[in-house]
């Protein structure tokens, strides 16, 4: 696949982008139907959409991996991929920022206003008399009923340690990859996957505990809303990250990556560190403080 020295690389056309767009449409169409109570149409359309999206992911990544292994890409393409991944992670950061913003705004401003602080005094007197601001809260009308929160120094602390360790193990794996220690690479990447899975296992355990024993649910007013949406979206990202790690492990086992060309590995590592940092923020602002 010789390329003229200094020439740019432009990939050939591909059916996967439009296949992906069709899949996303079917998925969203189904999701909207399902949410509106048309269960059957919804489920069918969601399933079709998900199947198309999965096919697209396999097909598209497969093409890219084949092209990459065939030596089609040059340093410039590599940098484009890097820029793409960096800015994608930045967009993810901003998505979480919206939910953190909701948490800080309600905790810092609107809940105290409901309790009568500042210009909220009259509202509090006429609408929510007797409500005193506190955190955690499910609001003046006690939406969802009394609940307990999950203590920070139990499972959440454990999960913090798990994710921080996984950050270490993936870094060790990366060094092993760069040094060419194949066995060490597979072992430490394997550790990272196990840590990711155990994080998810503990998180699921924590959710079950919250729903069955603590009466802490998505319905538990603003505390339940921010708690579950933040930790839930984070958990979703850990799930995606774990799947990505498994794919990367398989590719490492196949010997897809070389010492100096393994952007796929690095992209997953960046993503994993991002998920890690979001968790540290969550631990601090959702559980500890």
């Amino acid at each position: 696949m010789a390329q003229q020295q200094g020439a740019y690389y432009v990939p050939h056309g591909s059916k996967w982008p439009i296949v992906g767009a069709v899949g996303m449409f079917a998925f969203m169409w189904g999701a909207a139907h399902w949410i509106n109570g048309n269960e059957l149409e919804g489920h069918i359309s969601i399933a079709i959409g998900a199947a198309i999206i999965l096919t697209m992911l396999f097909g598209w990544f497969g093409t890219v991996i084949r092209e990459s292994n065939g030596g089609t890409y040059n340093k410039q393409v590599d940098l484009s991929f890097r820029l793409g991944m960096m800015w994608f992670i930045f967009s993810e950061v901003m998505f979480f920022a919206a939910f953190f913003g909701a948490l800080f705004y309600t905790r810092g401003l609107s809940v105290p206003w409901l309790g009568g602080e500042g210009h909220g005094a009259i509202t509090n007197y006429y609408l929510w008399r007797g409500y005193t601001a506190a955190w955690p809260t499910n609001g003046p009308l006690d939406i969802g009923g009394a609940f307990h929160t999950i203590p920070a120094w139990g499972v959440p602390l454990l999960n913090t340690l798990i994710l921080l360790s996984s950050g270490v193990t993936i870094t060790v794996a990366h060094h092993a990859l760069k040094a060419g220690y194949r066995k060490q690479l597979l072992v430490f990447l394997g550790f990272t996957i196990l840590l990711g899975v155990s994080f998810l296992w503990f998180q699921a355990h924590e959710y079950i505990e919250a729903y069955t024993h603590l009466n802490l649910t998505l319905h538990s007013g603003i505390y339940g809303s921010t708690f579950f949406m933040l930790t839930g979206f984070h958990g979703l990202h850990v799930t995606l990250g774990t799947i990505m790690l498994i794919v990367i492990w398989l590719r490492c086992a196949k010997g897809d990556f070389s010492k100096d060309s393994h952007f796929g590995f690095e992209a997953v590592a960046w993503y994993w560190h991002f998920v890690d940092i979001v968790w540290v923020m969550l631990f601090l602002f959702v559980y500890v403080l």
């Binding site: 705004y105 409901l114 499910n138 319905h219 007013g221 603003i222 949406m229």
Partner: peptide, 12 residues
């Protein structure tokens, strides 16, 4: 059932 924008649940 979240309460982000529902004052009765502590949202705004």
């Amino acid at each position: 059932g979240t309460s982000f924008f529902n004052a009765a649940g502590g949202g705004d």
